[in-house]
Design a protein around this nucleic acid. Structure first.
Lengths: 189, 189
DNA sequence: GGGGCCATGTAATCGGTTACATGATTGA
DNA sequence: TCAATCATGTAACCGATTACATGGCCCC
């Protein structure tokens, strides 16, 4: 139920419309908790129905500006203080690694070097983002910078690991070669 | 559509029943791609309907043993060779960091130190797992070890980052204090 | 006038989780 | 005999994605 708390968290910092929130999701939170337009609008209606937020003003084109209510603030703080995030599951990039034995060694290596490069590129993008928000002293940016630093370290670590793993392919393949083998690519003609 | 390829990947290494696969998901893949029982069984039926796997034997209690077909092998290799994983979204632990300004500094710090400790514990668990599978030379274990190394590095990196971030709280709070402030906890009496 | 942005919503579908339901076989 | 394990399936629900649908407002 984290989208709910993401919306609450944003409205705790500034009142805004669904359209306003969408922009924030697309910029500040895109690497952390992306949300689609339809999801944001229906969550706003659900939160309003539950009394955690309220319409504070209406504007042109049916614009509805929402503010967080006391109940909403309480719920946000309860979530932050009393619950802990679940471990991160469903890591597709890592799932693939398990099955790399299905590919010829050079293709397996190619995947890992691609992963390394993709993470170096990612790191560069984050560095640019960091420069952009350097002067921002709003709360969201202050704490967002901590999250961004995580992104930087993660990209660096992943790139290093992928390069290391690419080098391990030869070791693995020599173990496989030293077996009266079945499985893997053994069905090839 | 990764569950589909996870099942294909496992059946590429050994024929097995839904029950057999469940055990592998619960052990080898639990940190990477968990799957529920109902999901595995319905995916097996779907894969069989699509001709990517086939029932190779039946046993007691309605046991159905599946093997991967040539089409299935082709699809698995196509997935590995021609598609690339999407970036990892929806990281709840990081979403929370953005909203830590809603908590008093000591509670924000507490969250980060908890994160650091949780990752140190995680690392220890992975080290134990590593020792357990040390002698296993099946393909799944060979490549699985690369993924495990990722887990180890990730836990170490995250723990270090969280400890670093916890130390940054004071800096952030002094920026906030030096503002004729609104937002955050400013609504408190 | 018209293009681009502001603004909100609905519907279909998908992948995943949880709970429910059932029963056969094996071995102590 | 009876508990543990093997074994497969269905149904309800939830969160998320994608596509569709509509229209007002602002400024050039």
């Amino acid at each position: 139920m984290s989208l709910r708390h993401a919306v609450l968290g944003l409205l705790a910092e500034f009142p805004g419309s669904g359209y306003d929130l969408m922009k924030v999701f697309d910029i500040s939170l895109r690497n952390v908790w992306p949300a689609s337009q339809s999801q944001v609008y229906s969550e706003l209606n659900a939160l309003a129905a539950d009394g955690l937020i309220a319409v504070s003003a209406t504007g042109p084109r049916g614009r509805k500006e929402y503010v967080i209510t006391d109940d909403g603030t309480a719920e946000l703080r309860r979530w932050l203080a009393e619950t802990r995030p679940a471990r991160n599951f469903h890591v597709e990039g890592l799932l693939r690694v398990h099955f790399l034995g299905q590919l010829p060694p050079d293709q397996a290596r190619e995947y890992l070097t691609w992963l390394a490069e993709a993470n170096i590129a990612e790191r560069k993008k984050l560095r640019e983002l960091e420069a952009e928000i350097a002067g921002d002293t709003r709360d969201l940016a202050l704490y967002g910078r901590l999250a961004l630093e995580y992104g930087l370290r993660n990209a660096a670590m992943t790139a290093e690991w992928a390069a290391w793993a690419a080098e391990r392919i030869d070791d693995i393949e020599s173990v496989r070669a030293g077996r009266a083998d079945s499985g893997g690519r053994s069905d090839e003609k």
